[in-house]
């Protein structure tokens, strides 16, 4: 019998190609972009030198019409509506389904299917649905309201200068609520039956059961849902490009990067990207560390 001792060297060897690839293509390129964001390089020629944080200062303090701040505000509105929307709908659906329902599979399949569709494809139909024409020019959803006589519900959708981004988040909510529902369903089903039974024995009402027993158990699920929807929101590009195209009204940082690259301002595009990365990192890194720690504990 040739008993071999397990040494960790082969493991590290097997994984090392991936590590090298990620070291280069994730961390190396991020480093490259960070460096580029601190260069005086606003055209296709080589950099004219290192300028520290000047490009960031320009973005926040000297951007014409505060364009960058405006794109961040747009992103904020979008993100809040997107996250709240998916979590509310996802939770509602999962509550309606979690104790089993007739044709549960059907409902779940329908709620989830938008997830399989790309933003580019769904953008085609949502651009049509969110037609801002009203009254006799009403189209899309407005036409339904018009037909039902609910004129006051007709809206300008994404063309509203203040809340347009809330409308822009609707297709994203449509697309990902089913996903959040699935997360919650898995969360509910991960809760041991003993907990429910104990609560019932103690005479808890349905409301108390959810409030005191089940929801606290779902904290990790909610956290996952927040992280997933949140980071998707930061990257949002496809949907906006296919619904409105790149324009002031609906500009978010990811679209601003695209527009800036069109004018070959490489350093500025890099600075916007790096800022976006920082926002994501501020949320995701603590989360990853938290997950890592809690795993070690268990």
């Amino acid at each position: 019998m040739r008993h071999r001792k397990r040494t960790w060297i082969p493991g590290l060897l097997l994984i090392s190609p991936s590590l090298i690839l990620l070291a280069v293509f994730v961390y190396g390129l991020i480093g490259w972009t960070v460096d580029l964001s601190m260069q005086d390089r606003h055209n296709a020629r080589p950099s004219k030198g290192f300028v520290g944080l000047d490009n960031y200062d320009k973005l926040f303090n000297h951007d014409i019409n505060d364009r960058f701040t405006h794109s961040l505000l747009n992103l904020l509105v979008f993100t809040v509506v997107f996250i709240v929307g998916t979590i509310v709908l996802g939770l509602l659906w999962s509550l309606l389904l979690e104790r089993g329902a007739r044709a549960e599979g059907f409902f779940r399949t329908v709620y989830l299917f938008p997830m399989a569709v790309s933003f580019v494809a769904s953008g085609v139909v949502w651009r049509w649905l969110m037609n801002p024409g009203q009254g006799e020019n009403a189209g899309g959803i407005n036409a339904i309201f018009e037909g039902l006589g609910l004129h006051f519900l007709e809206g300008p959708w994404w063309t509203d200068p203040d809340w347009g981004m809330a409308a822009m988040a609707m297709p994203a909510v449509w697309q990902l609520s089913g996903y959040v529902m699935a997360l919650f369903l898995a969360g509910f089903r991960g809760i041991p039956d003993e907990l429910r039974e104990a609560a019932v024995v103690d005479g808890a009402t349905t409301f108390q059961l959810y409030r005191r027993v089940l929801f606290p158990q779902l904290t990790p699920t909610i956290l996952s849902a927040l992280i997933i929807t949140g980071h998707m929101s930061m990257k949002m590009f496809d949907l906006i490009m296919s619904v409105s195209g790149a324009q002031w009204l609906t500009e978010v940082p990811a679209v601003y990067v695209w527009q800036t690259l069109l004018t070959r301002d490489y350093a500025k595009a890099a600075a916007i990207s790096v800022f976006l990365l920082l926002v994501v990192a501020v949320v995701v890194v603590p989360y990853l560390i938290h997950v890592n720690r809690s795993e070690k504990r268990s």
Binding site: V26, L36, L276
Partner: peptide, 22 residues
């Protein structure tokens, strides 16, 4: 564990942050 966390971070990055040099 540290390596795993470092790998996972790659899931979340906005790809714009690597697009220019990529």
């Amino acid at each position: 564990d540290v390596v795993f966390t470092l790998i996972l971070f790659g899931m979340f990055i906005p790809y714009q942050a690597v697009m220019i040099p990529l």
